[in-house]
Design a protein around this nucleic acid. Structure first.
Length: 638
RNA sequence: GCUGCCGUAGCUCAGUCGGUAGAGCAUACCCUUGGUAAGGGUAAGGUCGAUGGUUCGAUUCCAUUCGGCAGCACCA
């Protein structure tokens, strides 16, 4: 007897072994048709898995969200590989996982795929779906599988299988003439893939993710259970494109970039206004948290970077200068060694700790050309950087305070959803294992005390210490890593920072490296995309446009602008000889949050017609009242 | 940096199977004073990314190079 317990708690008994499909059929023909896979004691398995003992069983259908989508996308990858092998038999297959929103497959092939090939492959995939090939799991001996794939000329597959311990049984999945190494599970047949998939783009990708290896050709696709979801996803991509900060930067006259200064930003008046608004906000917040702001040199002798250890790891990505008098300088790529120099001036006491040293530090890094992306990834940027010199005992309280600062800052910029990653020691690092043990446990403990839930990001710490990384989610569901907090026992040692303890002895401070926004350039790019350029009033570079209907209202309009400016509002007049429709359209497209329209009536009655961006309606109010309302709304968060 | 794609007016794009280019929007000027997302007219605007080669002739073909885009790798 085999007793199967279903999610609703009901139990079905069978005289002997049954498959998931049998159970589904037993429950009902509709379910049998919809069934894609099963979950056995929590683990996803093929629908045709034979159950020989009593189990908890759930039948997975398209309604099962993420699990079901992952199955679907994984199958899409297999179907794509099958299509590619049919069309281009000389191609070798490698790996093809499901990913967020879709899937990819990496192929090895001497001639690159073209966009035309993509269409052909997609058409062939549709055929394979129509063929409704059964997807069958087979178990093979490892060595037989290696031999099998080598015979087929699939050296990558053979290599993957070779790295599985010898003697182990491995699973292969067969669909039609196509057979692939795969852990599974899979859908029962290719027809289940349906039609809601689309090949998206071609790209290069290194074999096993290592840039020393040869480059394979990756084809990305997206797959969904129905057309509506696919269309929804494609619409989201269009929306993301409309919000692209590079596009809005141009359209809204915020900034530009050009060849003569690759990786740098030319901030126009409006963009710089936005930048300054964010900067002054941050400065107020830091002042309130008792940070001291400093400014350190741009050009620093290379020896300091050797002493700090940065030269070892990052000399390739530093801008360096040989001066006329033969000195070797580096344009600073970061601020920490300079902050240690300030700390080292004079004698520091335990009474000075924690010492929170902040700088809006302008840094330059020679980023690889392929990494550059608008203002999000540049070679010249400004960090909202700070280093907290403290004792080990103070790590927890400083972490708590920082986490509070960070979450409230994010909230003020409209980001409520923040996740935290904990990155531990990387392979290439400075400092002893004991030091790392200490730093990692101190940081984890502090994070816990701050009430943070962290996920582990193994081996991704900085070379001098572990870090917390703060990831925020924007208005259209994209994640951005911005803030960071790093515990560092290494740099104070290397750069000989110390303080006098209560007992008169000399001690090393701990350094906490921390940033909330990360870099201004990147954060402003994120803000632009998050708000799609429609900033809340306090952030909007141009807050109010006063537009006239007739030229008789010109002098009144100028008076209105003066009143607004006197009250600290960023306002401009539009007195052009254009119709009001035209002006409304233009300033709406420019995403100015508030338009005050004035005609003969308003001028006579000393009122304004308030028209807010995105609203069709207007409100006529007295000028004084309008100014007061706008001042209130435009006041930045504390 | 690697792979692939791309580079024509301020923007979005068309075009030249090799004979130095065109549209819409934007701009300037003129007319229009119009009540909430494009009023009308006229004009100006381009060494077709750069360099070299092939050719009688290159924006078009080839090579190199610079830059951009997508992904990979990188991200102190």
């Amino acid at each position: 007897m085999v007793a199967i317990t279903l999610p609703d708690g009901s139990v079905r008994s069978y005289p002997g072994p049954v498959t998931g499909l049998d159970v589904a059929k037993d429950i009902g023909p509709g379910l049998a048709k919809a069934a894609l896979a099963i979950r056995v004691n929590g683990e996803m398995k093929d629908l045709t898995t034979t159950l020989t003992t009593d189990t908890q069983l759930a039948i997975v259908t398209a309604k099962d969200g993420a699990d079901a989508l992952e199955l679907l996308r994984h199958d899409a990858a297999h179907v794509m590989a099958e299509a590619v092998k049919e069309l281009y038999p000389e191609t070798q297959v490698t790996i093809g996982p499901s990913i967020e929103n879709g899937f990819y497959y990496d192929f090895a092939r001497p001639t690159p795929f073209t966009p035309d090939d993509l269409e052909k492959i997609e058409a062939r995939m549709q055929e394979i779906v129509a063929r409704d090939e059964q997807i069958v799991r087979e178990e093979w001996d490892r060595d037989d599988a290696v031999k099998f794939f080598l015979d087929q000329g699939e050296k990558y597959k053979a290599e993957i299988i070779s790295s599985i311990p010898a003697g182990q049984t491995i699973s292969l999945y067969r669909q039609g003439a196509f057979i692939d190494l795969c852990r599974g599970p899979h859908l029962p047949s290719t027809a289940k893939l349906g039609k809601a998939f689309k090949l998206m783009k071609l790209a290069g990708a290194y074999w096993r993710g290592d840039s020393k290896n040869e480059m394979l050709q990756r084809i990305y696709g997206t797959a969904w259970f129905d057309k509506k979801d696919l269309d929804g996803y494609l619409t989201m991509l269009e929306e993301a494109e409309k919000r692209d900060h590079r596009r809005l930067g141009r359209e809204m006259d915020l900034f530009h970039q050009q060849e003569e200064a690759v990786g740098s930003v030319f901030w126009h008046q409006k963009g710089w206004q936005l930048y300054r608004t964010v900067e002054s906000y941050m400065r107020r917040r830091l002042d309130a948290e008792n940070y001291q702001e400093v400014k350190t040199p741009q050009l620093v002798d290379f020896s300091l970077w050797e002493a700090s250890g940065h030269a070892d790891k990052f000399s390739e990505s530093m801008f360096t200068i040989k001066t006329q008098d033969e000195r070797h300088l580096a344009v600073k790529p970061m601020n920490c060694p300079c902050h240690v120099q300030i700390f080292r001036q004079g004698i520091k006491s335990y009474r000075d700790l924690p010492l929170r040293m902040a700088e809006f530090g302008s840094c330059h890094r020679y980023e690889p050309s392929g990494a550059l992306h608008g203002i999000m990834r540049v070679r010249a940027f400004t960090q909202d950087d700070a280093h907290i010199f403290c004792t080990e005992d103070q790590i927890t309280s400083e972490t708590i305070a920082f986490c509070h600062l960070l979450t409230t800052v994010y909230k003020d910029f409209g980001f409520e959803d923040v996740r935290v990653k904990f990155s531990d020691r990387p392979a290439k690092r400075a400092g002893s294992d004991e030091t790392w043990d200490k730093a990692e446990s101190a940081l984890l403990e502090a994070a816990k005390a701050a009430g943070l839930e962290t996920t582990l990001n193994p081996g991704e710490g900085a070379f001098y210490g572990p870090k917390l990384e703060f990831v925020l989610r924007d208005a259209i569901g994209r994640d951005w890593q911005c803030g960071t907090l790093q515990v560092d026992f290494v740099l104070p040692e290397r750069l000989d920072a110390n303080y006098t303890a209560e007992d008169g002895s000399k001690k090393r401070p701990v350094m906490l490296h921390r940033a909330v926004l990360g870099s201004f350039e990147r954060f402003l790019g994120i803000l632009i995309e998050n708000y799609a350029g429609r900033f809340p009033l306090w952030l909007a570079p141009a807050q109010v446009t006063v537009a006239t209907i007739v030229s008789d209202a010109n002098s009144y309009a100028e008076e209105v602008v003066s009143a607004l400016k006197a009250a600290g509002i960023r306002a401009e007049a539009d007195l052009r000889n254009e119709k009001i429709n035209y002006k409304v359209r233009e300033h709406s497209l420019a995403k100015v949050p508030v338009m005050l329209v004035v005609g003969k009536r308003e001028a006579e009655e000393r009122t304004v017609a308030i028209r807010r961006l995105g609203s069709q309606s207007q409100e006529i109010v007295a000028l004084d009242q309008a100014v007061a309302t706008l001042v209130r709304e435009a006041t930045p968060p504390a």
